[in-house]
Design a protein around this nucleic acid. Structure first.
Lengths: 242, 242
DNA sequence: TGGAGAAATTGATTAGGATCAAGGTTTGCC
DNA sequence: GGCAAACCTTGATCCTAATCAATTTCTCCA
């Protein structure tokens, strides 16, 4: 029987957070799943799946960071999503991966066999409904990202990225907010549709202007979240992560 | 009882194409829906829903073209999707619209009350499954579009757009392919993350280079689809429409 | 059929980010 | 601790697409 640890918001029987899949699970529905899970670890840079590969599993991120991306024949590539702990990888009903999944840090996934997973979801209406919701959330976040890619300036893109990271990874520290960036400058440039040089320059500019404080290259402090929000040029504060 | 007209691939009882929602409906599941549908017409430029509005219906496009878009406080906007006949508008389980829907031509929608629709879907597993699939398709198309917005040149963007239009709207005409563009230059620029001037110039360039033939401003002939595919710089030929 | 307004094209100029090219810093490992 | 490789920053220059500014071409209705 699956229990939800309401403190950590993490399902105690599996690393899939309630918001990811089992928010309404009170009982045995996912029990079978718990029995068939297995863990797998990937080193930084390792490929989890390649576009076109058969997808025989669904999984959730236990620890580390992974990216979703698509690339062109000549090597240009665009990240289309970033996966943090508790995020879900998988396409119920789909057999072929439609993008690359790559580990950007030491990454641990909790796998489930896709068929078994599908068996559970298809026989459990509320899990099915939750799936539609998850995918709709992803779609919303992805469309938000389209606005960023198509219309925002480099500075706004960086600010938006920091904002998204702050929302998911930031910890309050008195007035300000602290976090450790999940991506290298290089991966950031892939995500934002920029070059690494532009990312570096704009980070420097935001630092110079007091929007952020950098300690080393990854540790970021945001002294004033509203200031960052302004810089991101965002209407909606519902920005989430594709 | 819903019947599927296999010739037109259109459900005879409602204008939702089988691929959109009821490909496996052989019987009464959607019967109730057929009774409660109603049609509504919008003139060009009219707003169907605005971001943040309560969404009390789901609908499908009967005729005309609509766009999905998001905009920033200062007026910059980005189209995030284009809806052609048979496409589906709606977010089962969602009460608030997360983008604007606008008619770009005379537009007729077939509406269903959302609650009634949800009742049908939630009690019909295979319709539920189909819903997940529809949203996953949209997600794939949207991610494909992210690659375009983030990494393609203006010329490649135009070529990609033409390719997508050709796939959905083109009619074989001997060796070549003909179609009528569904969007104005202005709407194209919104879709592609460009300005209207750049769209115009690149269309002219592609015409000059023999990739397309223009008759008036909307009628396009593609003499060689492979040439266009090259210009679009696309790996996958699975490009679909967000 | 003519004319007005919308839509599209074309030209000149500018600017934001890419590219090319060195240097600096971290990080990790022996 | 020292070294190498990866990662990051900074500078100079270039180029693509944006911006500003007129026309020109459609469209559609009186």
């Amino acid at each position: 029987m699956i229990k939800i640890d309401s403190t950590t918001q993490t399902c105690s029987n599996c690393p899939i957070r309630p918001r990811a899949i089992c928010s309404r699970c009170t009982g045995e529905e996912l029990d079978e799943l718990g029995k068939i899970k297995y863990y797998k670890t990937y080193s930084p840079g390792a490929s989890v799946v390649l576009m076109g590969d058969p997808m025989t599993f669904v999984a959730s991120v236990v620890s580390g960071v992974a990216t979703l991306s698509r690339s062109m024949a000549d090597g240009r590539m665009q990240m289309v999503g970033m996966l943090l702990p508790s995020d879900f990888i998988g396409r119920p009903g789909r057999d072929i991966a439609s993008f690359d999944v790559t580990a950007v840090s030491e990454l641990t996934l909790c796998h489930f066999h896709k068929r078994a997973f599908e068996k559970v979801t298809s026989s459990t209406p509320h899990v099915q409904e939750r799936l539609v919701e998850i995918v709709l959330d992803e779609l919303d976040a992805t469309r938000e990202w389209m606005l960023l890619l198509g219309r925002k300036t480099a500075r706004e893109k960086i600010a938006s990225f920091l904002l998204i990271c702050a929302r998911r990874l930031g910890t309050q520290e008195g007035e300000s907010l602290q976090m450790s960036l999940p991506l290298t400058r290089d991966a950031m440039s892939d995500y934002l549709g920029l070059t690494i040089e532009t990312v570096s320059r704009q980070m420097a500019a935001l630092k110079r202007d007091g929007v952020l404080v950098l300690e080393g290259t990854r540790k970021v402090t945001i002294p004033d979240l509203n200031r960052l929000l302004d810089e991101a040029g965002d209407d909606s504060d519902g920005a989430t992560l594709p």
